[in-house]
């Protein structure tokens, strides 16, 4: 049975996906009917794959996150380019296990994907409440940096994070 909440979620997803189509078609209205149909199918698929919504959305947190992401993805690209091009190739990679404080699935996915694009970290495995991260250079405070990203992601959804429960390895 479709509740009112899931109907609302479905409509929001339909509108967002249709808006993406509209932008990709450069605002050309003549193909919008086709876009609306495809977006309808995509929204239906999205609802069947993940019926739950996001825990909330903080516009200010999202804006802060966008700025943080932009600056750090530049730093991430520069960092890895330097390591690849330097003759000495300064890398000292290691896996680290990070005990997640985020509980919501959407927030965890955004967190894991963000980490992969930021300097020196790459999400490798999400199992239970632990995220296994591959660090390109383990000489710095990798866990501290990961925790900072997690706080930024929590800010997007307006979630407050508890103190880390387990010790990091």
């Amino acid at each position: 049975m479709m509740t009112l909440t899931s109907l609302r979620r479905f409509l929001v997803r339909w509108i967002v996906i249709a808006a993406v189509w509209w932008i990709i078609s450069e605002g050309d209205g003549s193909s919008l009917w086709l876009g609306a149909l495809v977006a309808l199918a995509a929204a239906a698929l999205s609802m069947s794959l993940r019926p739950d919504g996001i825990p909330g959305l903080s516009p200010l947190g999202a804006l802060r996150f966008a700025g943080y992401f932009l600056v750090n993805s530049v730093l991430g690209g520069v960092d890895v380019a330097m390591r690849a091009l330097k003759p000495s190739m300064p890398i000292d990679p290691r896996f680290v296990s990070y005990p997640l404080r985020l509980t919501d699935v959407s927030a965890r996915v955004l967190f894991a994907n963000t980490l992969s694009l930021l300097p020196g970290t790459l999400s490798a495995q999400l199992s239970g409440d632990t995220l296994v991260v591959h660090a390109l250079d383990c000489s710095g405070d990798v866990i501290g940096e990961i925790a900072q990203v997690e706080e930024r992601v929590a800010g997007v959804f307006g979630i407050a994070l508890a103190e880390a429960s387990g010790g990091a390895v």
Partner: peptide
Amino acid sequence: YTRLHALTKSDNLG
């Protein structure tokens, strides 16, 4: 794993 670092981050920026 290290190769994935190179691909994801520099292609993102590129």
